[in-house]
Amino acid sequence: MSRYDEQLETLLTAKAQGKGVNVRILEAGLDTKIKEGTLEHQDLEVAAFVARSLGSMSSRVKYSQIRRALESKSEEQAAE
């Protein structure tokens, strides 16, 4: 996941420095995190950025999957 983390850092600082971000690496990292079940709130923001950047149906679906997974995770924590 080091390439994902590297691109995530670039994304977080890109607004201030004007650097480019490799959206495909971010998308692949999100796929991995979905499969592993290690999603965080920050990943939802990354997925939104990827969906806006690519505009593809698959990236929009991925955003929805992450949003639903995080919502169900927060509901489970609230039920405990």
Rank of each mutant, 00 (worst) to 15 (best):
L12K: 12
T13S: 09
T13K: 08
A14V: 05
K15L: 03
G18N: 11
G18L: 06
G18R: 07
G18W: 03
G20Y: 00
G20D: 12
G20F: 02
G20W: 03
N22Q: 13
V23H: 00
R24L: 13
R24V: 06
E27Y: 09
A28I: 05
G29A: 08
G29R: 02
D31Q: 07
D31W: 01
K33H: 10
K33L: 14
K33F: 08
K33Q: 15
K35P: 02
E36F: 02
T38G: 00
T38E: 07
T38V: 10
L39T: 03
L39H: 04
H41N: 14
H41L: 13
Q42E: 15
Q42S: 14
D43M: 02
L44P: 12
L44F: 15
L44M: 15
E45S: 10
E45P: 03
V46H: 08
A48N: 11
F49R: 09
V50C: 04
V50S: 00
S53D: 13
S53I: 02
S53F: 03
L54S: 12
S56E: 05
S56G: 00
S56Q: 09
M57G: 04
M57Q: 12
M57N: 07
R60Q: 15
R60H: 04
K62V: 10
K62A: 06
S64W: 08
S64K: 12
S64F: 07
Q65V: 14
Q65L: 13
Q65A: 10
